[in-house]
Design a protein around this nucleic acid. Structure first.
Lengths: 261, 261
DNA sequence: CGCCGACTTGACACCAATCAAGATAAGTGG
DNA sequence: CCACTTATCTTGATTGGTGTCAAGTCGGCG
């Protein structure tokens, strides 16, 4: 059910007031999400990229950027906002594979098509690059290809992290892991105030963590009950006990059954 | 508990009777695991690789190739055998992230260290490449770097597949997915005989699928009860109903509760 | 043969998915 | 601004599924 038109700025006119930055880092160092400051692209490379970029402005959340199975013509990079990358299982269940944040690149094709879907979860500004032309540039600029490799390697680490969470943690632990993940982004977490501002709803959290919505709500309630976090407003959470959240990771998935007799 | 010494052939003498093949494929086509035949490396590149390779011969399973946290000096490629890539959670639980098969490359560093552990699950022959020298070659041979990118991209798809499985499938479905995965490798599956020969024990299957060993055993028992597969010997399974296995993917994770009243 | 590890089966408690229904928040139109 | 609709979130009751403990059986190897 397609319920709304995509809301885009006119293509072909790259915004100049926004610096174009695809995050990158030296080889052998991709475990931490690269920050914007450590940008390895040369001015020339940045110029080349900017020349083929289009800025898309999404005014509200819930809009689809592309869907799995579509032919690939573009790849995308986030300037502002959050994008969810998802896939639908054979039984129709949606699994969110990742949340992409400013600086991230997504939409890299596989077999010429998108294997995942991408939707903005909130208002967002996104750069769009023609894939063919990006490939052409990469042939000339090996550094750019290296950046792409770094990006994919980073995504792989992140996916493996997700596997660890889904494989061995209970719902409460998963929620803690999810929150801890976002505490590392100054863009979302104000460390001084201990306030986390997430534009992600329960629905999406649940589909990301592989749990039911109701269970996600219950897990949030338990966080408050146990004094680890407190909900101030929708998408606005005060983190009361980071150590406590980390401590949860050490627990077993399930409490040991009491040895009777 | 380190219980055995590594069993290696003397280093520095690359075997010549085995062709050195790192699987590769054209850009934009990584969804299927690349097959050996479609090898994109030029003879020159193969020669260069072979020159820096060492062959390791593991005579039995259970031997560690490297452990998470160790400094990276080598990357590895499988010629024969199966390797499990695993990581330990904070609570000590082991999660197997992937099984690597002949043609696969693994041990790519992150921040200069291995982020995962690798152990052979059966006798195996493995090529070892000094990472620094491989990087040197990649600078000269862009095609090689592209191959590395393809490899990482393939691993990412595989990891995302795993996320789908762990996120929304019950134990029975997971086991079916696992079996179906291996049906695609002629090296393990004899399609004519419908026989799957896997050198992977229940222990490892359970840790791969994120379930308890006992649950894995029960899932196998159910496969037999429902006539989908039959265990001939340890690690030797007759697949009786591929369609049936695929059908399982369509079910919900949990049976709908009966609408009472 | 006897040991040991791998695997299986059973019992049971606990977790979380489901169904249901209410509460709260966010839009929408008057 | 309010009344209304709609979406999102929360809480409760129920039960299926699976992790845990326990106690087996099987199979390979010395």
């Amino acid at each position: 059910m397609l319920k709304s038109r995509v809301n885009r700025s006119e293509p072909s006119m790259p915004e100049t007031r926004h610096t174009l930055e695809i995050r990158a880092r030296p080889f052998d160092r991709v475990s931490d999400r690269p920050s914007r400051i450590e940008n390895l692209l040369s001015p020339k490379e940045q110029r080349e990229l900017r020349a083929i970029a289009t800025v898309l402005d999404y005014r509200r959340g819930g809009i689809t950027i592309f869907s799995e199975g579509e032919d690939v013509h573009f790849v995308y990079a986030i300037d502002e906002g959050v994008v969810r990358i998802s896939r639908h299982a054979a039984n129709g269940q949606r699994q969110i594979l990742a949340f992409m944040v400013p600086g991230d690149l997504f939409g890299i094709p596989d077999g010429g098509v998108y294997v995942n879907s991408a939707e903005v979860v909130c208002p967002a500004r996104i750069y769009r690059f023609p894939w063919q032309r990006l490939k052409d540039i990469m042939v000339r600029e090996p550094q750019l290809q290296l950046n792409l490799l770094m990006k994919v390697a980073y995504d792989l680490r992140q996916a493996q992290r997700q596997i660890m969470i889904l494989g061995h943690q209970n719902t409460y632990q998963r929620l803690a892991s999810f929150l801890l993940d976002f505490l590392r982004y100054p863009g979302f977490y104000d460390e001084k105030q201990s306030r986390l501002n997430l534009p992600i709803n329960r629905f999406d959290v649940a589909d990301y963590l592989g749990i039911a919505r109701e269970t996600a709500a219950r897990a949030f309630a338990r966080l408050e009950r146990e004094g680890l976090a407190r909900r101030l407003a929708s998408g606005d959470i005060e983190i009361l006990n980071v150590k406590g959240l980390q401590q949860l990771q050490l627990d077993r998935r399930r409490r040991r059954v009491k040895t009777m007799r």
